[in-house]
Simulated assay, not measured.
Amino acid sequence: MPQKRKQPEDSERKGVPGDDESDDDDTDMINVDFEWFSPKPEVDFHGLKTLLKQLFDADAQLFNLSELVNIILSQPGLGSTVKTEGDESDPFAFMTVLNLHQHRENQAVKDLTQYLIQKSSSSSSSLAQIPSLLSPSSNAQVGLILTERFINMPSEIVPPMYKFLSEEISLAVQAKEPFQFSHYLIVSKTYKEIESKLDQEDDRPAKKSKGSKDEAVFYFHPEDEALHQQALGFGDYDYSKQGDEGASDSKRAFQELGVKPSGHIILVEGSKFEEAVRSVGEYLGAA
């Protein structure tokens, strides 16, 4: 039975945006108790699949997400889910790591690995070594970190997930399990703000130009900026599947401009992972 994780004292109760429909400018906050659990096969399948679909965005349809979830749930002692109503409820966030070398014969992992090779080749030159690390002939032990959370979840839940994962990997290595990673690959997402199609269709006044800020990159996962400090490389990539012209407006949750998401890849050397975990905690204000 999955063991309930102890909550850090500084994150026992966190505020998340409420659903108040009033016109007040101040967002109402609801105090929520967050609890960390190990993945639970009989409960978490659908919740994890939903979060994976959100993580891969438009390209989620390219993968066998059910099989990826089955792999995640086959290693319940590794990784975390974050819930608010006990371990029988659906997860609001999760984090885990998959050994791409160990699962290289699994078709779902093959498809995902080929995707990562393709996207890293079209992304930043700092990711140029990923294709060789992930090639079938490579003996590199690459740990793929998968993590996602609902958009209104506070970032303070992230450092405990990374801390738990680091500790669990260390225990697994001591137990001679295949989690001695030479590299870690983290899949994430970024976005840029673009002019709203709704504004164009309704002949609304054009939003004020933001100049060079129009090209600014924003992070769905703010911890990515801390991970960059310890990374061998990182970069954005375009999704293979593009939504229709109005897709960006469906992602306008908290702003007036449209949102164009992109995939994001971070490569961290295995020896730098613990330092990267500390950087995430410091960056997000965790102890």
Rank of each mutant, 00 (worst) to 15 (best):
R149G: 04
I157W: 00
S126M: 00
H101K: 11
S170N: 02
T96M: 13
Y162I: 09
E177D: 08
A93G: 10
V97H: 07
Y184Q: 09
L133P: 05
D90T: 15
S132G: 11
S126W: 03
I194A: 06
F92Q: 04
S122E: 14
F179G: 01
S170K: 13
S123A: 14
Q107E: 09
V142F: 06
I145A: 01
P136M: 00
P131E: 02
S135G: 12
K176A: 12
K197Y: 14
L144I: 02
H101Y: 08
E195M: 15
E167P: 04
Q180I: 11
S123V: 12
S137D: 13
A140S: 12
H103Y: 10
L116A: 01
D199K: 11
M161N: 08
M153Y: 00
K189R: 15
V173N: 09
I151E: 14
F94T: 06
S196C: 12
E156K: 06
T96C: 13
M95N: 04
K192Y: 06
Q174K: 15
L185Q: 02
A172P: 03
F94R: 07
G143F: 01
S135M: 09
V109G: 00
L198V: 15
H103N: 07
N152W: 13
Q114N: 11
P160Y: 05
K110Y: 01
I169A: 04
K189L: 13
F150T: 14
N106L: 00
L116I: 05
V142R: 06
L165H: 07
K192W: 06
S123E: 05
Y115F: 14
S170I: 08
M153D: 08
P154I: 00
R104P: 03
S188H: 05
E148F: 12
A140F: 03
F179C: 01
S166G: 09
A172K: 14
V142G: 02
L198T: 13
P159K: 03
E168P: 07
S120V: 09
S125T: 11
Y162S: 00
E156N: 01
E177G: 04
A175E: 10
S123G: 13
A108S: 06
M95Q: 15
L146E: 08
S126D: 05
H101I: 07
